[in-house]
Nucleic acid binder design. Structure first.
Lengths: 247, 247
DNA sequence: TCTTGTCGTTACGGTGGTAGAACGCCCGAC
DNA sequence: GTCGGGCGTTCTACCACCGTAACGACAAGA
């Protein structure tokens, strides 16, 4: 029984490496149970007992933690085709919370469904390993950004990161996009207060680096933004081709 | 032909999940070419063309990047049994540098040796995927630390993290350990200057939280350190048991 | 209309960076 | 042995960046 003909996750993978039809079908099975959720709804709370992972099919989701003093750190913003909640493969209790940034469609699937997938499709297991490594590199980039750069650089590189990842999932985007994040949320992502995020954004606007109109952001001078943010787009450099055929 | 009877990496894995003898032998093959390196030697430089990964067998290694303004961000400190350089599975050019913090023994192996391992041992592929997810969670913990906590909290949680990871690889350690990092390096890891790291360490010493003698650090009050650093030891909570047998 | 949420703006203060020098310690050279 | 250089650490001032607090403007819903 196939409720879905296509798979968001398979489509994403297929952009980097060819997939067989059986692999596509196996991946599509992860998305058999789409669930609509509303903007602001919690998908998972820290410390919940969790046995599910998700593929995000539509909309935007973020993960975050709240520290004992009440401050929030946003860990990652997810886009359609992203694999969410991989921490559940290793820990029984969720180390982070998940919330929908927009109305969204997520496809939950059980840990044991993942196990069967890993058993039956070793090439998929290898691909998941590679994707996980890409996430690891993305996180180290942000680590360097938070640890060693100024407020302006952090905001610039964050905007560029969202922009580039959005473009991986949506070809129509050229230079203008809807952030779907408040300035407070940007601050919680890059380790600043909303006040200071606002200072930096206005400054970049005055310098002609970006422009804004009702929620949408336009990147006017990519080159200088990349320079300011010490940012390099890694998506171009990904290479999964060394992992061909296999059984 | 077996140059090594045991495998550092297999030993580590076996602490979390049972391994078959053939799996252990397959993993041991990754460590067939041990190479001694001296403290301070570079194993890999940013932007090198890389087709190798490493298992660290002895000693300590760290990864870092240098930003255009010259500042350094230390990304990760590695211990014996750790799998190093997984970025090479996805990118042809190294996104980070690797340097030995002490005299060390690393075992390089080719990307294609890894591919054969993934092909022949799907369960190993699945385990590598899980371990990579554990790394991801560790990085998000540090992201929250850098983004939202004070200098003191960052130093405290960093010390606790090194301590706990050292204990995973060496049972003999109880409360005192050799950091093998200068205060400047600690600063580069947690996003502070060596001056401020020094302030925090002396302060923690005066408060009776830690003590020092010729390079070794003793954690005197773990409970308060964990509180100050908002730190939780995740190693206890790891659960790979849901991924049993497989072919 | 009132409420709620987001953005914009100001004044003030503290955390943590910068600069510079001195100290101790290890280790190799003589 | 001792002398000296290099490295890591300790310490002192000074001050900039960024956080805190507080309030107003504005738009979208209730």
């Amino acid at each position: 029984m196939f409720l879905v003909a296509t798979s968001c996750f398979a489509d994403r993978l297929a952009k980097h490496v060819p997939l067989s039809d059986t692999e596509k079908m196996a991946l599509a099975r992860l998305e058999e149970n789409p669930r609509k959720i509303r903007r602001g709804a919690m998908i998972q709370r820290v410390n919940d007992l969790v046995t599910e992972l998700f593929v995000l099919r539509e909309g935007r989701v973020m993960s975050f933690v709240i520290l004992p003093d009440g401050s929030r750190q946003i860990l990652r913003v997810y886009f359609p085709g992203d694999f969410i909640g991989s921490a559940s493969t290793i820990y029984n209790r969720a180390p982070e919370s998940l919330v929908a940034l927009s109305d969204a469609v997520v496809c939950p699937f059980d840990k044991h469904a993942l196990r069967r997938l890993l058993e039956d499709y070793p090439r998929v297991a290898a691909l998941l390993f590679l994707l996980s490594n890409a996430e690891r590199v993305a996180l180290t980039d942000r680590l360097a950004s938070l640890g060693r750069t100024s407020a302006k650089a952090r905001v610039a590189s964050f905007l560029l990161d969202i922009f580039d990842r959005l473009r991986v999932t949506d070809d129509r985007i050229t230079d203008s996009f809807d952030l779907k994040l408040t300035q407070e949320e940007i601050g919680d992502a890059v380790g600043l207060t909303s006040v200071h995020v606002n200072r930096m954004i206005r400054q970049m606007e005055q310098e002609g680096l970006i422009s804004r109109s009702n929620g949408r952001i336009t990147l006017l001078d990519m080159e200088r933004l990349e320079e300011i943010g010490h940012y390099t787009n890694r998506h171009k450099d990904m290479d999964l081709e060394w992992l061909p055929g296999m059984a």
